[in-house]
């Protein structure tokens, strides 16, 4: 089922010009629900998929999506985490910021509107998480 969401997210991101990063949400979700290693694994799968469909660096994608998935699970395990919209928003927002910042550090490629992308993605995260959960 995860792969279907991944492909749908890919089609949406490829076609619609949006300030969103649905892939980060798909890496954060397993981390929050199943722990750091599920986040790491699903993040790696997401990174491989993004590597195929985008012109960006293949290895950097795998590394960063794995990192975001792993971190979401690891942080969740070490703090008091209550499943609610606010927490999902915060984790998704931080995930997008970490992804684009690390991408800039590693490749010197910058996205023009990181903050708005993080904000819109995070705002959509409760809905996306609910759909993916089903």
């Amino acid at each position: 089922m995860f792969f279907i969401w991944l492909i749908l997210a890919g089609l949406l991101q490829l076609t619609f010009v949006m300030d969103l990063n649905l892939f980060v949400l798909l890496a954060v979700f397993p981390g929050l629900r199943k722990g750091p290693f599920a986040g790491l694994l699903m993040g790696a799968v997401t990174g491989i998929f993004v590597g195929f469909i985008s012109a960006s660096h293949f290895a950097v994608n795998i590394a960063l999506y794995s990192l975001v998935g792993f971190l979401s699970g690891a942080v969740r395990a070490h703090i008091y985490y209550k499943e609610n919209i606010f927490m999902e928003f915060v984790f998704s927002f931080c995930g997008v910021i970490i992804f684009y910042s690390a991408y800039f550090i590693l490749t010197n490629t910058v996205k023009s509107s990181i903050f708005s992308t993080a904000l819109f993605s995070a705002a959509l995260s409760p809905l996306i998480f609910k759909i993916v959960k089903i």
């Binding site: 490829l14 300030d19 012109a55 960006s56 490629t109 996205k111 023009s112 992308t117």
Partner: peptide
């Protein structure tokens, strides 16, 4: 044009 870069990091089209 059927697609653009999904991450908005590169200016490419498909």
């Amino acid at each position: 044009v059927i697609a653009r870069d999904p991450l908005g990091l590169h200016d490419t089209i498909i």
